[in-house]
């Protein structure tokens, strides 16, 4: 039977396709690495992680955002931030301050030099 006329969203796995890169962006990998490490060490529970990520994905869908790898990992990042803020592990205010400090450090560091924070900036 031919499947050609079926309107489809999915397709068979292509055995001949070259291996796609596992992570589109380095930060995608880092978000999952942090989440998995914190679940493994018991800092956050697997259930809380799944539920918070699910809620962020639902919020994306309700808001009509595109359903892509990029929006998936953005939802994962928001879920992680929200969980850590709620568990008083990393307060959202601390995170914002540190984000701004990193931004200044990036902008102030010449090309080619490693971007680092001095003790006073931490």
């Amino acid at each position: 039977m031919s499947n050609c006329n079926i309107p489809r969203e999915f397709g068979p796995e292509d055995a001949l396709a070259p291996d796609a890169p596992k992570f589109g962006e380095a930060w995608h990998a880092q978000v999952l690495a942090i989440a998995d490490t914190l679940v493994t060490s018991g800092q956050i529970s697997a259930t809380a992680w799944a539920e918070t990520l699910g809620a962020e994905r639902d919020a994306d869908e309700s808001a009509g955002r595109a359903d892509t790898e990029e929006t998936y990992y953005e939802a994962a990042l928001r879920a992680l931030e929200r969980l850590l803020d709620g568990a008083e592990i990393v307060a959202s205010g601390d995170l914002k301050t540190r984000r701004d400090t990193w931004e200044r450090a990036y902008l102030a560091t010449p090309h080619g030099a490693p971007v680092e924070l001095t003790a006073g900036e931490k």
């Binding site: 978000v31 953005e74 540190r98 990036y106």
Partner: peptide
């Protein structure tokens, strides 16, 4: 070489953790 916004937030989170 300012990273994209989510990368900056991940960097902030990782360094605090």
């Amino acid at each position: 070489h300012l990273p994209p916004e989510p990368a900056l937030r991940v960097k902030a989170l990782e360094s605090l953790l």
